[in-house]
Simulated assay, not measured.
Amino acid sequence: MERFDLNILGCGSATPTLQHNPTSQVLNVREKLFMIDCGEGTQLQFRHSRLRFGRLNHIFISHLHGDHCFGLIGLISTLALLGRTGDITIHAHADLETILRPQLDYFCREIPCDVKIEPFDPQISELIYEDRSITVKTIPLIHRIPCAGFLFQEKPKEAHLITDKIKFYDIPIKELAKIKKGADFIREDGTIVPNERLTRPAEPSKSYAYCSDTAYNEKIIPIIEGVDLLYHEATFADAEAFRAKQTGHSTARQAGKIAKMAGVKKLMLGHFSARYTDNGILLQEAKELFDNTILANEGLCEKL
């Protein structure tokens, strides 16, 4: 089973607490690490999680509030100290260039790698990254400043060859790649061996949606529909619904409603307000609408 693991480095909101760190998480896809947001202290949490700096090449920043990006300069400085030579690409609102570049020029003048900032438009859903394994699309969110979530989707996997059948029909090696992709095999006498006789279905592709920070927004449902795991902010309990709307945030109950309407497989709550010393009330409210809900917590590694 190939890895598709979500590591929580921080799941608190803007006000620092002893309970939670500012927002950051790392998605491990087949040993490639993708960081989502980078709040203050992220590099220390990265160490605590025993993740490997050398496997991190792409960072996705949802929006330019400090609790989601203040950790960037520290992280990049550490990568420079470690002798990092491979490029680092940061996907973010275009304004990050004017914010981060002067810091890099001052603190990281001799960094041996290139830090690239790839801008995206938070107001539209678009493909912003692709490799052989996954695609990453933006999810427009509603917040006080331009903000986007991210949808990570594994590409469809190839079917598994049934070794005994391949040998039985004496199929040449050059035909195997086509059969993995769904082709039938045509024998020398013209008879057709159906693909389903030669292969077993591949494991289902995994998907993960990150939605923070955002007010309640049903427009995201078609984008995140059916994902294996939805991380949705739950800054407030339902008693603070008015405050949530004022500040561009969601309640736990609203997160549960979104998960139910989108038909996701599992919901993870995060971005907890500092006012809650016990996040159990948030879990309870979300589970009233969507039972398969868990709380994010530093050090949690959720295997999809």
Rank of each mutant, 00 (worst) to 15 (best):
H20V: 00
A159I: 01
D87N: 15
P16V: 02
Y129F: 14
S62K: 03
L127D: 09
N297Q: 13
P156C: 01
K219R: 15
C113V: 00
G280M: 06
N7D: 06
E285R: 04
E158R: 13
E302S: 01
T214K: 02
G71C: 10
D278I: 06
S273V: 05
D131Q: 08
K303Q: 13
G270S: 08
R3Q: 09
G226S: 04
Q284W: 00
V136P: 07
E126R: 11
L176V: 02
E196G: 03
I224D: 10
A255N: 00
Y231V: 10
C11G: 01
H65I: 11
F53C: 01
G86C: 06
D238R: 02
A209Q: 09
P201W: 03
N7W: 01
L75Y: 11
I166V: 15
K155G: 14
A244I: 03
E126W: 00
D67T: 11
Y276N: 05
A80H: 08
E97L: 13
F70R: 01
N57A: 10
V136L: 05
K181F: 01
E2W: 04
R253K: 15
E154R: 12
V264G: 10
D164V: 04
C69A: 06
E31R: 14
E233Q: 11
G248P: 06
R253N: 05
P22A: 03
L141P: 01
G74H: 08
I171C: 07
F34Q: 08
A159S: 15
C108E: 02
C147P: 05
K287N: 06
Q45N: 14
L44C: 02
R197W: 07
L96Y: 04
I99S: 04
I124T: 14
S77G: 12
N279D: 12
L18W: 05
G182F: 00
L304P: 03
E218M: 11
A255Y: 06
G190Q: 09
I142D: 04
A244D: 02
D114I: 13
G54H: 08
A255W: 06
I59H: 12
G182I: 03
R187M: 14
D170Q: 15
G270N: 06
L300T: 08
C11N: 08
V264K: 01
A252T: 04
V29E: 04
D184K: 13
